[in-house]
Structure formats: structure tokens, C-alpha cells
């Protein structure tokens, strides 16, 4: 099994004068599901953004490694699948068109068979030619999973993965998380007990608050 690892070294984030978290040191490895827990506003999404390279930490380092080689930030998008509430797909395109354009912009060949099987798996194959603006929020959430998984990422980062999903949708997501965790690294940022129940290890952001004091 190829190894993928993520190391957080003294990761600190400060917005203005507000300390979000202080000196998070943690190592994550493929083959496991990890959780990022904490109440609303604790910084789960901020830490997810920092891990995904969308946001720079105020201090500290985030190191992604694949088979022992450090991944440079410019190449991280090839290894990362990200699902989050603030991720928005293109409403003016159909589901298929969205997936086609994303594959091409990533520089990968559009695998129509894989796209078809994933659309079927998430139960939106029959609506694949509808514009995304006609989708419900739950269907859009399902599309985000396909967007995140289509390029077979090594790191799957899921911020509130089951929001807007019905029970069959949640079951499907849990099945996929367990399947992906066999070979890849899966990190879930959530408040839901049922989401966190899948995790082998949980990082509680509240443990890294330093009582709100900026050192």
C-alpha cells in the first residue's frame, strides 16, 4: 500500500487579534479515518482550509508526503479531494459538464465510465443532464463528493460531510469513507456524533486554544 501522510508542526492561526488555535502538532497517516472536532466557531473549517492549502497558517508548517516525498503546494490539488459547505460548483453547467471541465482543468483525462458509476452510486445519474441550478442542496452535496473523488485523491478532507443529506445519502457517505480509508487518508471535520464515530483518532480543536491568549 502506498503511504500518504500529513504532518502539522506548530500550526497556529490568528485572525486579527483572535487566536483560533495554537501550536497544533499532529501526524496523520493513510489507512485511517481521523476526526477534527470542536463546537461551532472552534476553527474546524479553518484547519481544514489550512490542511488543503487554501489558507496559510499564521505560524507553523503543514507537510504532505506521498511515499516519503514531500508534495509541493502547487501539486497538492492532484492529491486532494475536498468536500465542504463553502465549496460551490458551477450552476450553469450540468452535472456531467461540471465533472468534464474539472477533469480537464486538473489536467486529467475525463473518465466517463468512472463518472457514470459515481453518478449512479450517488443516485443522480438520471439527473446528470440537468443544470446544477435545478438541483436540491442534498443533490449538490452528492455532486461535491463526486467532484472530490473523481481524480482518486490520496487525501480526502471532508468538512461537515453529511450536511443536507438524507439517511440513504449519509449511509452512502459512510460506506465511501470506510472504503477510501483502506488505502487513503480520510479526515472528517464535523460536530455530528455519527460522523465522528467512524474516526479512529479525533483531534479536538478546543485543546489547542491556549485560553485564547496570543503568545
Amino acid at each position: 500500500m502506498n503511504k500518504f501522510s500529513l504532518t502539522l508542526k506548530d500550526v497556529t492561526k490568528i485572525f486579527g487579534r483572535r487566536l483560533i488555535f495554537d501550536k497544533i502538532n499532529y501526524s496523520f497517516e493513510s489507512g485511517k479515518v481521523y476526526g477534527l472536532a470542536g463546537p461551532n466557531g472552534s476553527g474546524k473549517s479553518t484547519l481544514s482550509k489550512i490542511i488543503s492549502g487554501l489558507l496559510e497558517p499564521t505560524h507553523g508548517k503543514v507537510i504532505h508526503e506521498s511515499d516519503g516525498s514531500i508534495i509541493i503546494p502547487e501539486k497538492l490539488h492532484d492529491y486532494l479531494g475536498f468536500v465542504s459547505p463553502y465549496l460551490v460548483l458551477y450552476d450553469e453547467f450540468t452535472a456531467e459538464e461540471n465533472l468534464f471541465h474539472f477533469s480537464k482543468i486538473r489536467g486529467t483525462q475525463y473518465d466517463s465510465e468512472k463518472a457514470k458509476s459515481m453518478l449512479e452510486e450517488f443516485n443522480i445519474y438520471n439527473r446528470r443532464t440537468d443544470l446544477l441550478k435545478a438541483y436540491s442542496s442534498g443533490m449538490k452535496q452528492r455532486m461535491k463528493f463526486i467532484f472530490a473523488l473523481l481524480h482518486s485523491p490520496r487525501l480526502l478532507l471532508l468538512d461537515e460531510p453529511t450536511s443536507n443529506l438524507d439517511n440513504p445519502g449519509k449511509e452512502k457517505v459512510y460506506e465511501i469513507i470506510n472504503r477510501e480509508a483502506e488505502n487513503n487518508l480520510v479526515i472528517i471535520a464535523s460536530n455530528e456524533d455519527s460522523d465522528l464515530a467512524l474516526c479512529k483518532e479525533i483531534v479536538n480543536i478546543e485543546d489547542f486554544k491556549n485560553n485564547g491568549n496570543i503568545k
Binding site: 488543503s52 487554501l54 502547487e74 501539486k75 490539488h77 486532494l80 475536498f82 465542504s84 463553502y86 465549496l87 460551490v88 460548483l89 458551477y90 474539472f102 482543468i105 486538473r106 467532484f147
Partner: peptide
């Protein structure tokens, strides 16, 4: 954000 996730 979507674009930031898929391309350099």
C-alpha cells in the same frame, strides 16, 4: 475556492 482546489 473550487478553482483553487483543482489548479495551480
Amino acid at each position: 475556492l473550487t478553482l483553487q482546489l483543482i489548479a495551480s
